Amino acid sequence: MKTNIYKKLVRQYYEELWNKKSKAMIEELFTDDIEFHGSLNIDTKGKKEFENYMDAILKGIPNLHHGIEILLEENATIAVRAIYNGTHSGKLFDYEASNNRIKYNGASFFKFRDEKISNIWVLGDLATLHKQIASPKNSQ
């Protein structure tokens, strides 16, 4: 059943690629023309552009952890409610390191082709993220 394969790929996306920072998973998980649309106003096409995006995020939040709260499948699309945690200890876009702990919610939608991830849309709670990284050291 493809749903099980899709769910496995999404779990590997979060656990192996992001949480364990295993960039080798980019080759294994994605189609060559992977399209990523992020709520941080970033769109990428292809594995190399995604890797560059990942590098930029991890430069700003090196210990970023993605937690899966809900994982659902509908019509060969996987939807995830996620919680992101980490420490803003490097420059993230226009924000210098605040050393603040961050925690915010998001939702991601995954599409597939040839048993690989071909498209990802991420919608994150940017208001909360910006508030946490723009303020002086917080106590979160």
Score class of each variant (00 low, 15 high):
residue 73 E to T: 08
residue 100 N to I: 12
residue 17 L to P: 03
residue 114 D to K: 12
residue 123 L to I: 15
residue 15 E to K: 11
residue 30 F to Q: 08
residue 26 I to Q: 04
residue 71 L to K: 01
residue 83 I to K: 12
residue 78 I to R: 02
residue 4 N to C: 05
residue 45 K to H: 12
residue 50 F to T: 04
residue 70 I to V: 14
residue 84 Y to S: 00
residue 82 A to G: 08
residue 130 H to T: 14
residue 13 Y to S: 01
residue 16 E to W: 08
residue 42 I to M: 10
residue 100 N to Q: 09
residue 72 L to Q: 10
residue 64 L to N: 07
residue 86 G to T: 13
residue 45 K to N: 10
residue 32 D to S: 13
residue 118 S to Q: 11
residue 137 K to Y: 11
residue 76 A to H: 07
residue 75 N to Y: 00
residue 116 K to G: 06
residue 15 E to Y: 06
residue 137 K to D: 00
residue 120 I to P: 06
residue 59 K to E: 15
residue 121 W to E: 13
residue 107 A to Y: 14
residue 4 N to D: 15
residue 14 Y to Q: 04
residue 29 L to M: 06
residue 75 N to G: 14
residue 87 T to H: 09
residue 79 A to P: 02
residue 126 L to M: 14
residue 114 D to L: 03
residue 7 K to V: 11
residue 93 F to P: 01
residue 45 K to E: 09
residue 95 Y to D: 02
residue 103 K to N: 10
residue 34 I to N: 09
residue 110 F to Y: 13
residue 2 K to L: 10
residue 117 I to M: 08
residue 131 K to F: 07
residue 94 D to Q: 13
residue 117 I to N: 11
residue 15 E to H: 04
residue 81 R to E: 15
residue 38 G to L: 10
residue 9 L to I: 00
residue 126 L to D: 09
residue 16 E to Q: 13
residue 87 T to Q: 07
residue 25 M to W: 06
residue 65 H to I: 13
residue 125 D to I: 05
residue 27 E to G: 12
residue 50 F to H: 07
residue 51 E to P: 01
residue 61 I to T: 03
residue 28 E to M: 08
residue 26 I to Y: 03
residue 27 E to A: 08
residue 128 T to P: 13
residue 117 I to R: 07
residue 50 F to P: 03
residue 77 T to H: 08
residue 50 F to G: 02
residue 10 V to P: 02
residue 82 A to H: 08
residue 88 H to K: 07
residue 25 M to N: 06
residue 47 K to S: 03
residue 73 E to H: 05
residue 130 H to Y: 14
residue 49 E to W: 09
residue 41 N to T: 02
residue 7 K to H: 13
residue 31 T to Q: 06
residue 54 M to N: 04
residue 124 G to R: 10
residue 37 H to I: 11
residue 95 Y to L: 05
residue 31 T to P: 12
residue 11 R to G: 01
residue 23 K to T: 15
residue 114 D to M: 01
residue 130 H to D: 04
residue 39 S to N: 11
